[in-house]
Design a protein around this nucleic acid. Sequence first.
DNA 1: CTGAAAGCGCTTACAG
DNA 2: CTGAAAGCGCTTACAG
Lengths: 332, 332
Amino acid sequence: MPVTIKDVANRANVSPSTVSRVISDNSRISDATKERVRAAMAELNYQPNLIARSLTNQTTHTIGLLLPGSDSDLLLNPFFVQAMRGISAYAKKKGYYILFTHAEIEEDEVDVLTDLVGSKWVDGIILTTVKDNDKRIAFLQEKKHPFVVIGRPDDEKLTYWVDNDNVNAMFDVVDMLIKKGKKTIGFIGGSHEFKVTKYRLLGYLKALKSNGIDMDLNLIYEKDYTEEAAYEATMDILGYKQPDAIVTTDDLIAFGVQRALHEKNLDQVSLVGFNNTLLSQYKTPSITSVDINAEKLGMFASKLLISQIEKEAIETNNYIINTKLVERDSTK
Amino acid sequence: MPVTIKDVANRANVSPSTVSRVISDNSRISDATKERVRAAMAELNYQPNLIARSLTNQTTHTIGLLLPGSDSDLLLNPFFVQAMRGISAYAKKKGYYILFTHAEIEEDEVDVLTDLVGSKWVDGIILTTVKDNDKRIAFLQEKKHPFVVIGRPDDEKLTYWVDNDNVNAMFDVVDMLIKKGKKTIGFIGGSHEFKVTKYRLLGYLKALKSNGIDMDLNLIYEKDYTEEAAYEATMDILGYKQPDAIVTTDDLIAFGVQRALHEKNLDQVSLVGFNNTLLSQYKTPSITSVDINAEKLGMFASKLLISQIEKEAIETNNYIINTKLVERDSTK
DNA sequence: CTGAAAGCGCTTACAG
DNA sequence: CTGAAAGCGCTTACAG
C-alpha cells in the first residue's frame, strides 16, 4: 500500500538504484533523470522508509535519552525539560530523532541501557545526570557505544561531556555574598550522589577559604532535591544558629528555604538558588538564582554526540557552558 | 561484529529460522532445541536487532509523542512531564519505545507529523493538546494512522482520546465556592484556542447558572498560560471590582493571581488552581487545586493507543480520568 | 550515466 | 519438528 522506491522507479522508468541515487543527490545522475525521478516522487507522494534505510546503513539517526526514573520527583525539575528542548532542537536540525527512556528504579538503569544499545535502536545516548563511579558510564564505555553526559564525569578525558563550571559558579555566589558582608552562610544541596552537588559544594568551600572564613559543618546539608527536605534542613540550621545567607544548588531547594525563613520572619536572610526557574522571579522576595543555561547544555550535548556519531573531526571532548548570576531581591 | 541470528544458528547447529522461532517461543520447536538455542544465545550474548525485525514486521513498537514547541513556555508546565511519565511507564511495560518530537513553531506541527508518519518510524502517535478544528487530528485521521489525543476532540466518536471531565471538575470548584457564600467569582484561563480552557469555562458558567448568578464578562479572562499574564489579568479584574474568589485553569496561572492578590493585600480572596502542582501546597497561603491525574491521563493514552495498534478488541474509544479537588488554605 | 545483484538481519509461508 | 527460500525497502560495489 505505501509507496516504495520501486513504485517510483516504475513510474519514472528507471531502476530502484537510480531512485536511491536521486534521493541522495548523487552527482553521477544526469539532471534530466533527476528531474524525472523527482517528478515521480512528488506525484506519488513518496517518502523513504527510514527503517529500511536504517537497516542498510546500520545507523538509525536516533538518539537515546535517559531521563530520571519514576522513583523520584527529579524529572519534575524544570532542568530536564529545558535540557530536552535544547537536545531536541539541535537533533532536529541535524535530522535526528530522539527516543527517551527511563528506569522505574535507578538500579535498573544499566539494564535499560543494555536493551537500548543491544536493540540497535539508537546511534548514541545522552545521560542527563552524572554520579560518582557511574555504572552507566562504565557500561557505555565498555560497549564503546557513543554517548555524552550532562555533568562532569570522573574521567574527564575519556568521556564526552558538557557542564557548567559549577565550582566557579558557586564560588562567585558565595564570594559575592561575603563581599556584601555576610559571614555565616549556610549551604543546602541535593543528594551528594550527584556530582553537581559535589562541585557546587567545592565552590562554596573555596569561597569561604579564599575569604578566610572557617567552614562549619553544621551549616552544610546535602539532602533530596525537594522543597520539603530543604525546608527541614533550613529549620535545622536555624535551630543551630541564625545565618546571614543560605545558598542552595537548586531553585526548588531555595523555595523550601524561603518558606522556612518566611515562617521564622527571617526574610532578610540572603538566599540564592540555581537554575533560574521561571518561578524564582515571582517569589516574594524574588529569588537570586544562577542561570545555568539548561537549554544550551542540552544543545551542546546533542552537538557533541552527533559529531561523535558522524565521526567528524572533533576539537574537544567537552563544553563548559557559561552561567549567569541573576540578582534579585533575595540578596538585596 | 555484533552477533546476529546467524551466529546463534551456527553455534546451536540449527537454521536461523529455528532461532527466530525460539525467540518467539513457537510451540512447534522441541524443548531440546529450545534449550540448545537459548544456551547459544546466552553464550553469545545475543540480542535481536530490532530494526531488522521492524522492517520485516512493518511495525516498530515505537510511539511518537508530539510535545509543545519551543515557541511557547507551555512545555515547562509540569503537566507534560507528568503525562510523559505515565505514557512511558505503560509503554515500557508493553515493550514500546517512545520517540518525542515537536515543531519549533506551531504551524509546522502538521509537517512534523507528515515526516514522522511517512518515515514509518512510529506505530502510533499521541498528541498532548487539543484545539478547535485541530489540523493535526484531521491529518492523522485522513492518513488513517493510529493516534490518541489527550483532551476532548471535536469528534468524540471517531477519535481516540483521554481527558478529565473538565466541565464537571470546574463546576464542582465553582459550586463549592458559591456554597461557601462567594458571589463574585473571577475566571482566568489559558488561551482559548485550547479545548481545555473552553471546557473549564463551560463548567464555570454552568455553576453560576445553576446557582442563579449572572455571568459578568469583566470577570472572565482567557490569556496565555503564564504567571505574568495571570498577574495582569488579576490586576484588571481588581481594577474593575473586588471579587470574592478567582478560579483558574492552571496552577501557574493561580501563582500569578496570588501574587497580584498579595500585593493588593487581598489574601482572603479565595483562589483555586488546576493540576495540583508540587509547589501549590507550599505557597502562602497554600493553594487549593484540582488534581487532574496527569500521569494517569498519560497511562491511559498509552493504553488506548497500544490496543489500537495491536488491534485488540476495544470496548471504548475514550477514558475519562477522575479529578480530585484538593482543598488548601486558599479557600478556607 | 544507469542497472542488476547482493546484502542489511530478521520472519514466515511452504515444504518435508 | 526443522530448514530453504523469499521478502521487508532500502543502498552501494561492481559492471557496463
